[in-house]
Structure formats: structure tokens, C-alpha cells
Design a protein around this nucleic acid. Structure first.
Lengths: 119, 119
DNA sequence: GAAAACCCTGGAGCGTGCTCCAGGTCAAGG
DNA sequence: CCTTGACCTGGAGCACGCTCCAGGGTTTTC
């Protein structure tokens, strides 16, 4: 089984080493396996989860929600609940995209107005 | 000329009174006119500017940039620069919409995968 | 086997953007 | 008038999400 050093995990995941440690402290990552010397050894599973975490963070999910999701993920029986949570999040993402677009619309009207004034 | 009390300005603009004061301190709003007693009296112009501020904030423009824009707006001769700034911002908004959408795509693939596993 | 690079922990610090508070002044209804 | 509610200032405090640091142990490289 391949494992990854903190530096490698940071490289692959796109999070900083400090952020990885922070996420672990916060319970967003399950406790990462350690070498005999106490250094972290990330697994492919960990990196897979980090990939989803990245996606959720990039779409604006707060740390607290991510933590709740991670806690659910400890229990196999909560699969349906997790999917429901992702779908809720997807709806919120859609809403923020829509909101952004409508504000962008306003912005463009403003610009067009300036342009019409001969700028 | 109609003017608006802080409470009215908050109501119309959608910002809290505290936020309006904060924006004024930060230089995002030019100093608001005062009544003889020292209370703020917002003008229609102020509210118009606040409307644009709301749009820019909602689309993620940081306070510092907003301040720079506001400083430009003090000088009539900078109209072209201001429009250029808005257009830059519009491009960044487009980028963040695109980024959101591509992450949403990933999220939906994840959901679809769960669904395909019989959730 | 020693230097250099990497990693550990616990906790402090920071940037952003507000939000709240104390202690006092101003304004409008009865 | 006088009460009640809105407003004033300066400054502290807060939520979020990291980021950095000291003081030390581990691993790798030569």
C-alpha cells in the first residue's frame, strides 16, 4: 500500500501541510496513520477524501459542515444521509452561481451605462 | 432634496447601520452629510453608490479594492479608469462563476457515483 | 554517523469584514 | 418639558480559516 509524506500529500491535494494538520485537528480528516517515528503517512483513501474536501471548500462549504459530513462518513450506515447532504450542498452552489450571475448582470448594465455616456 | 436617516439608508441599501458607518470610516463612502445635530443624512446619490457597492461586494470584491475604486471616483477625470476596473472585476466574476461550475460538475459526478452504488 | 531536510506538538497570531458596546447627544410624540 | 427612541464616537470583540513559531524529534543523503 502506497503512502504519502505530509509534503507529498500537500503537493497532491493542493492544501498546505499546515492546513492538512488543521483539518485533522478539526476532525475533517480521520486521524492519519503514523510511521514508527510519529510522522504522518497519508493513504490513497485519505487523498481521495481530500479531493472531495477540496471540491466542497471551493464551492463554499464551511469547515463546520465539512466536519459534520466527515463524522457521518465514520458510520457506513449513513450513506444515504451523506448523499442527501451533498445534494443539499449542490443546491446551495446552484443558488450562489445564480446569485453571482444576476449580480454580474447588474454590473454589466452599469458598465454599459458608463460606455453609453461616452467613456 | 430628499435625505435618509441611517435607519432608512440601512433599510434601502440592505447594509446594517454599523456596516454603513464602517464603510464610511474605511473611505468606501465619501463623508456623509450631517444634520445640525450631527446625525447622518444620506442622499439619493449615496444610496446609488451603495447599490453598486452591494453589487461589487456580492460578487466578491474585497473592501480594499472597493476603497481604491471609491478614491478614483473622487476625481471626475478617472471615469475611464473606473470603467476599466469594473471590467476587470467582471472578468474575475466570470472566472469564479466558471470555477464554481466546474467544481459543481465534480460534485455532481460524485453524487452520481454514490447513486450508482445503490444509495 | 553527521549534516541537512523533514516532521512533530501546542499554541499564538493574523487578515478580513464586520458587529457590539459604553457612555453620551439629538429628535419627535404626548 | 420630558420621555422614548434613534443616533453619535472610539474602540473592543468576534467568527472564520488558516498560518506561523519555538523547541524538539526523525529520516535521508552522502
Amino acid at each position: 500500500m502506497t503512502t504519502y509524506s505530509p509534503a507529498q500529500a500537500a503537493e497532491v491535494s493542493g492544501f498546505s501541510i499546515d492546513t492538512l494538520r488543521y483539518y485533522e485537528r478539526e476532525g475533517i480528516l480521520r486521524p492519519i496513520a503514523r510511521t514508527s517515528g510519529g510522522h504522518r503517512a497519508y493513504t490513497d483513501d485519505d487523498l481521495g477524501w481530500l479531493d472531495l474536501v477540496h471540491c466542497l471548500r471551493d464551492t463554499g462549504m464551511p469547515i463546520a459542515d465539512l466536519k459534520r459530513y466527515a463524522e457521518l462518513a465514520l458510520d457506513e450506515a449513513t450513506l444515504a444521509a451523506r448523499v442527501a447532504l451533498l445534494e443539499d450542498h449542490d443546491r446551495r452552489v446552484q443558488e450562489s452561481i445564480d446569485a453571482l450571475r444576476s449580480q454580474q448582470e447588474k454590473l454589466r448594465e452599469k458598465i454599459a451605462w458608463y460606455r453609453s455616456q461616452g467613456v
